[in-house]
Design a protein around this nucleic acid. Structure first.
Length: 195
DNA sequence: TGCACGATGAAC
DNA sequence: TTCATCGTGCAC
């Protein structure tokens, strides 16, 4: 791993609390970089270190799903923070967001890439691959992240490293919002998605 | 009820 | 650059 800290036998003790998500979405996006996404499957912890994220700023953000308003699909986005918003893109791949901010703000962080740490089935450089690697699909939509089977963990004192800021990927349709610098990734990580 | 189009990934 | 593949939102 990029930061060769000793890893715990189980990441559950390092799980972040609800308050972690109850902050400004850009702040949460930065806090997620360098932390760990954990999915416990059949007794095994699948773990990836988050190296790339994007922030989506709610209904006013034309690139965000929340800009469609409250619909059956965006229900989870408008709900309480610390929950997973998982959806199908292009009929093929799943993407996972973390709901952030206050309930009703519908702000969220898209998890775009992880560095494989433990028990991953493939590489995780890209939002679709990330979900595939960790075994995340639509069934986890709305799942509480303050739980024992899908959660974010942060090691105390883990140095996140230098962060690169760029426009978000694949949102050219969003007008003025397309160019906003809301994509963040760890500089030099070979596990970020390309483009 | 139908239709256009994705917050992608992989192949050509 | 093209294509796979299907849920969603919106037009009609």
């Amino acid at each position: 791993m990029a930061s060769d800290l000793p890893l715990p036998a189980s990441f559950l003790d390092c799980r972040v609390p609800r308050e972690f998500y109850l902050r400004d979405v850009v702040e949460v996006a930065h806090a997620l970089l360098g932390s760990f996404l954990v999915h416990a499957v059949a007794g095994a912890e699948r773990v990836g270190r988050i190296v790339e994220v994007e922030a989506y700023l709610g209904p006013r953000d034309l690139a965000a799903h929340a800009s469609k308003g409250l619909t059956p699909r965006t229900r989870v986005l408008f709900g309480p923070p610390g929950h997973a918003y998982v959806y199908l893109v292009y009929g093929l791949h799943f993407c996972m967001n973390v709901v952030a901010g206050r309930e009703g703000e519908a702000t969220a962080v898209l998890l775009r890439a992880v560095e494989p740490v433990r028990e991953l089935t493939c590489r995780g450089n890209g939002p679709g691959l990330l979900c595939r690697a960790l075994g995340i699909d639509k069934r986890l939509n709305g799942h509480d992240l303050v739980s024992c089977d899908l959660f974010v963990a942060a090691l105390p004192g883990a140095p996140p490293g230098e962060v690169v800021t760029r426009p978000r990927v694949g949102v050219d349709y969003a007008g003025d919002w397309a160019g906003r610098p809301l994509r963040f990734y760890l500089k030099g990580s070979p596990h970020v998605s390309r483009r």
